[in-house]
């Protein structure tokens, strides 16, 4: 956790510094209120808090020494893949869904998306996978398209 805190703190310090620098590109109108002030205060606060997090984690790290097991253990690819593989796959499936939704149409894209997610939850019975995909898509289509009249993307062959 300490290593991760240091990394997150450093990333947020960089982001808040970029936010602060970005304020100098805002047009000012010369009144009592400048569009720069609030972003500068906010990014300044984030920089300060991130620095405190980094500093405190570094002091704690020096005090306790390097960790060889648990959260602070050295990085290992197999452990990483086992732990985060399915989450990364779910995020990837969801991203692909957002990208193909308009071209593929709501019904086929959603059915495929739900089926993929059910399988990512380690459900191997194809009847269950099919049922969730078909019923889930059907219910959402019924509620949002037919009742709420939301114009969902359609698959047009021509």
């Amino acid at each position: 956790m300490l290593t991760r805190n240091i990394i997150i703190g450093l990333v947020l310090m960089a982001v808040s510094a970029a936010f602060f620098a970005g304020t100098f590109g805002f047009e000012t109108t010369g009144g009592y209120v400048s569009p720069r002030v609030f972003p500068q205060v906010v990014s300044g606060c984030m920089f300060l808090l991130s620095a405190i997090l980094v500093g405190r984690s570094l002091v704690e790290r020096i005090r306790t020494g390097p960790v060889t097991t648990g959260e602070g253990a050295p990085f290992s690819w197999p452990a990483f893949a086992t732990r985060w593989g399915r989450i990364a796959a779910a995020a990837a499936v969801a991203f692909v869904y957002t990208q193909v939704l308009e071209s593929l149409g709501y019904v086929p894209a959603t059915a495929l998306f739900l089926a993929a997610l059910v399988m990512l939850f380690r459900e191997t019975r194809w009847v269950v996978v099919l049922a969730v995909a078909v019923l889930g898509t059907g219910v959402y289509y019924g509620v949002f398209r037919l009742i709420f009249k939301v114009p969902l993307p359609r698959f047009d062959l021509f």
């Binding site: 959603t110 998306f113 739900l114 997610l117 059910v118 939850f121 380690r122 969730v132 889930g136």
Partner: peptide, 9 residues
């Protein structure tokens, strides 16, 4: 395995 994919949808 049924509940969370439906929530995601």
């Amino acid at each position: 395995a049924i509940l969370f994919p439906l929530i995601f949808g």
